[in-house]
Amino acid sequence: MMALALLRRYGTLIGFVLILAVFWISLPETFMTARNWLNTTQQLSMLMVVAAGMTIVMAMGDFDLSVGSAASLAGIVAGALFIAGYPPAMAVGAALAIGLAGGAINGVLVSVIGILPFIATLATLTIYSGLAFVISGGKTISGKSIPESFGNFAREGLPLGEVGGVALMLPNLTIVAVAVVFLVWVLLEQTTFGRRLYAIGGNIEAAYLSGVPVRRLKLAAFALTGLSAAGAGLMYASRVASANPTQGSGLMLNAIAAVFLGMTMSEQGEPRILATVIGVLILGVLDNGLTQLAVDSYIRQILVGAIIVLAVSAGALGKRGRR
């Protein structure tokens, strides 16, 4: 019983440490280096932001399937405004506002109208994706239309000095991701708002009867998730210095996977932001390490899926043992 409980609580963490150990042994020269880790955090930053936002709605036991297309839409909106000659700050602000509004629409559909989040956000997924196609005409916005400052943002960072003749910097994208994670941590762990979201996730009826304004909170939570998705979409657009109507679509499933991986580590199986961070790190480190080991990219996909199944199984088995 004891062992099972430990496995349930720490199985994923032990797995993560094992993965790190394997890569460290297999890639002694390149894996556990400051440069590789700075690189990995930059590669993960967009997923980290979406997953942080996803944690907010998943704390209430809800889902948001539209984050990927909201991210694409935000990139396209910014791109279209760049073309129209608006200053970058304004275009970025408008794109974030679109994300917030898109999230709020999800919130209205789920909380005011009462559609299941799975169905409501599946519908808005298609709507936002369609909007991105309409605004862009299906084309990739790139080249001179994208202001240099916008494309350079993802390439720059805080210089950290030189190590072994290589200049290191803390990438801007990493800084943004850490800031978002910190904000979500404050929101979920340190405020009444966060506590109430977990109360809704625990027992929505009880939360409602004890005076929690369920509708308003749901709306706000979905709006924040939409905002974070838009932020990630802008980060993506900056990284590739272009905007494409489908570029965010890979983020949604990975974000949900990361939150699930994280959920296996918490006491009651509820999503916690710091656990989500570990989930994101697992996915990113696997991509980074397996690429360096020259493991076939399709095998990589199978491995990532298998590891999610393993982690969640360990959690489920542990739970059964408890009963």
Partner: peptide
Amino acid sequence: IDTSGDVAAVISRIEDVVNQ
């Protein structure tokens, strides 16, 4: 390495193999 349509992932994978 195939990134299944993800262009940002191409950047990530280039960085990984450069590191390697």
